[in-house]
Every structure is written in structure tokens, then in C-alpha cells.
């Protein structure tokens, strides 16, 4: 089981790395989807089956398809790729990396201080559903409001 976790983690990191360095948008998107699916596996190994399912359905399915639609609508072709090549010189990575590296080191230091095991066991959709419509019912309402606002906003903004 832990083998599955570490393998998926490796795939996930690698795919994400590929995703942020691609020149072609669609390629990047596909790498990101791979990363998401790997994460879904990790959720499964952590016993969060419901989350794993949502990760594939909502994230990899719905959201990424939305990206894909927009990319298709913008009809970005070869010129954009050329543009990306010009923009993404190796030197461009130096600054952000220098900023990100110490942050990562610090996070690692902080995380490694917390020694604890995740508990084996499945938290299934039923548990989640009971909690969701129990103590968290207000959060559900808020999320639905947010989605409604997003819906209206997206409709308004994308109008010609």
C-alpha cells in the first residue's frame, strides 16, 4: 500500500513539473491531468475514496475540460508556442526558484517536526455525507452561493 503511495507521489511530482515547464498548452494540461489522477490514487491510499472519486470526476473531468474548451476557443496555434519558447528562457527560472527553494526548505523543516501516522481505515461517502449535511450544512449553502456567483460572473464576463 505504501508502495502505491510513494509511486503515485513520484508520478504526481514529475507530472506537475512537466506541466509547468511545457510550451504547448494542451501538453501542459494533459500532464496536469496525469498529476491529478496520481493524486486521486494517493487519496485512495489514504482511505478517502469519496475524495478520490471527486478528484477524477470534478477536477480532471469538469475543470480541465473547461480549460480545454477555452484553449480551443482562443485557437492558440504555432505562434503562441513560438512566443512561449521566447519567454521561457532558462534564465527566467532562476529568480522564482531562488525564492521558492528556501520556502520549500522551511516547509520541510516545519513538517518534519510533526511525527504522526495516518490512521488506517476508510472514511466513505456515507460518513462524509452525514458530516456534510450535519454540522457543515451552512458551509454547503455558502459553497452553493459561491458557485452561483461564479456562474453569473462567468456568464457576464465571457459575453462579447
Amino acid at each position: 500500500m505504501s508502495v502505491l503511495f510513494y509511486a503515485s507521489a513520484f508520478v504526481s511530482v514529475l507530472a506537475t513539473l512537466m506541466a509547468i515547464t511545457r510550451i504547448n498548452v494542451v501538453h501542459a494540461l494533459l500532464y496536469f491531468i496525469v498529476s491529478l489522477i496520481a493524486l486521486s490514487v494517493i487519496f485512495y491510499t489514504l482511505g478517502a475514496h469519496f475524495a478520490a472519486a471527486l478528484e477524477v470526476i470534478v477536477y480532471a473531468g469538469a475543470i480541465m475540460v473547461m480549460f480545454l474548451f477555452v484553449i480551443m476557443m482562443l485557437n492558440l496555434g504555432k505562434p503562441t508556442e513560438e512566443q512561449e519558447r521566447v519567454w521561457l528562457k532558462p534564465g527566467m527560472w532562476v529568480g522564482p526558484s531562488l525564492l521558492a527553494a528556501p520556502l520549500l526548505v522551511e516547509l520541510v523543516v516545519m513538517i518534519s517536526g510533526a511525527k504522526a501516522q495516518t490512521q488506517a481505515g476508510v472514511i466513505n461517502a456515507k460518513d462524509v455525507g452525514i458530516a456534510l449535511f450535519g454540522p457543515y450544512v451552512l458551509a454547503v449553502e455558502l459553497a452553493s452561493l459561491l458557485l452561483l456567483a461564479g456562474l453569473v460572473g462567468a456568464y457576464h464576463l465571457a459575453r462579447k
Binding site: 529568480g95 522564482p96 525564492l99 521558492a100 528556501p102 520556502l103 522551511e106 516547509l107 523543516v109 516545519m110
Partner: peptide, 15 residues
């Protein structure tokens, strides 16, 4: 970048 630098600073202080 400004935002990230700020976060870095705060986390550094926290560590």
C-alpha cells in the same frame, strides 16, 4: 513575487 517574498519572510520568522 512581492506576495511570495512576504510569505517567505513570515515563514522564516515563524521557523
Amino acid at each position: 513575487i512581492t506576495l511570495a517574498s512576504g510569505v517567505l519572510l513570515l515563514v522564516t520568522i515563524g521557523v
